[in-house]
Amino acid sequence: MSAKKSPEELKGIFEKYAAKEGDPNQLSKEELKLLLQTEFPSLLKGPSTLDELFEELDKNGDGEVSFEEFQVLVKKISQ
């Protein structure tokens, strides 16, 4: 996936994966893993990378990643 996506496209991608289980407005760690493996495969170099990335993105510590938290990752990789 190209990092150059419109905000609407990014929101659609986020919602597609977030709706798989639990809260449709939040990504669980498994949903984030699936999204990254599919859309940004070069970001995941191993299991520790996912854990570190999830911890970094989950700013409020609720165990899930909101769209706002996800946007931090998108901004970081599009620079």
Rank of each mutant, 00 (worst) to 15 (best):
Leu27Lys: 00
Val65Glu: 00
Ser42Met: 06
Glu31Thr: 03
Lys59Trp: 14
Leu10Val: 05
Lys16Phe: 05
Lys11Ser: 03
Leu36Trp: 06
Glu55Tyr: 14
Glu56Pro: 15
Leu43Asp: 04
Leu34Cys: 08
Leu57Met: 14
Gly61Gln: 10
Gly22Cys: 01
Thr38Pro: 00
Phe40Gly: 03
Pro7Ile: 10
Glu52Phe: 06
Lys75Asp: 07
Ile13Lys: 03
Glu31Met: 11
Lys4Tyr: 12
Leu57Asp: 15
Gly63Val: 05
Ser66Pro: 04
Gly12Leu: 11
Asn60His: 07
Glu56Gln: 07
Pro47Gln: 14
Leu36Phe: 11
Leu36Gly: 00
Met1Gly: 01
Lys20Asn: 10
Lys5Pro: 02
Leu36Met: 15
Glu39Phe: 01
Thr49Ser: 12
Gln79Val: 05
Phe67Arg: 03
Gln26Thr: 06
Leu35Phe: 03
Glu21Ile: 09
Leu57Lys: 06
Val74Glu: 11
Leu10Ile: 08
Ser42Cys: 06
Leu10Lys: 01
Ser66His: 03
Phe54Val: 10
Glu8Leu: 09
Glu8Lys: 11
Ser6Asp: 06
Lys29His: 14
Leu10Thr: 03
Val65Met: 13
Lys75His: 12
Pro24Tyr: 06
Thr38His: 08
Asn25Cys: 10
Ser66Gly: 13
Lys5Ala: 08
Glu56His: 11
Phe70Ile: 01
Lys59Asn: 12
Lys16Ile: 02
Ser2Ile: 15
Asp23Ser: 08
Leu34Ala: 15
Glu9Val: 07
Glu8His: 03
Asp58Asn: 07
Glu64Asp: 14
Gln79Phe: 01
Lys4Glu: 03
Glu9Ser: 06
Asn60Thr: 08
Glu39Gln: 02
Phe54Asp: 13
Phe70Gly: 00
Ser42Gly: 09
Lys4Cys: 02
Gln37Gly: 11
Lys76Ile: 04
Leu10Gly: 00
Lys4Ile: 15
Ser2Thr: 15
Gln37Ala: 07
Met1Asp: 01
Glu56Ile: 02
Thr38Cys: 09
Leu50Val: 15
Ser6Trp: 01
Gln79Met: 13
Lys76Asp: 04
Ala18Val: 04
Pro24Leu: 04
Ser42Asn: 11
Val74Arg: 02
Leu35Lys: 00
Lys4Met: 09
Lys45Ala: 01
Leu34His: 14
Asn60Trp: 05
Val72Pro: 10
Glu30Leu: 07
Gln37Cys: 06
Lys29Gly: 06
Glu39Tyr: 02
Glu39Ser: 01
Val74Ile: 15
Asp58Val: 07
Asp23Ile: 12
Ile77Met: 03
Gly61Ile: 10
Gln26Ser: 14
Tyr17Asp: 00
Glu30Pro: 13
Lys59Gln: 10
Phe14Gln: 00
Leu73Gly: 08
Glu8Trp: 02
Thr49Ile: 10
Asn25Leu: 15
Lys4Gln: 07
Ser66Val: 11
Phe70Cys: 03
Ser78Trp: 05
Lys75Gln: 04
Glu69Asp: 12
Leu35Arg: 00
Ile77Ser: 03
Gly12Glu: 03
Lys75Asn: 03
Val72Asn: 10
Lys16Asn: 06
Lys76Asn: 02
Lys33Trp: 01
Glu21Trp: 02
Gln71His: 09
Pro24Ala: 05
Glu30Lys: 09
Gly22Pro: 02
Glu68Phe: 07
Lys76Leu: 02
Ala19Asn: 10
Pro7Ala: 10
Lys16His: 05
Asp62Glu: 14
Glu52Cys: 04
Leu32Cys: 05
Val65Ala: 05
Glu56Gly: 11
Asn25Glu: 10
Leu35His: 00
Gly22Lys: 08
Lys45Asn: 10
Leu73Met: 07
Pro47Leu: 09
Lys45His: 11
Lys33Tyr: 04
Asn60Leu: 09
Val74Met: 12
Leu32Met: 13
Glu15Thr: 15
Gln26Tyr: 12
Phe54Leu: 14
Gly12Asn: 11
Glu9Asp: 14
Leu73Phe: 04
Glu56Arg: 10
Glu69Arg: 07
Pro24Asn: 09
Thr49Leu: 07
Val74Asp: 08
Leu53Asn: 15
Asn25Val: 06
Pro41Val: 04
Gly22Phe: 01
Ala19Ser: 12
Leu27Ser: 00
Ser28His: 08
Ser28Val: 03
Ala19Met: 10
Leu43Arg: 06
Leu32Lys: 00
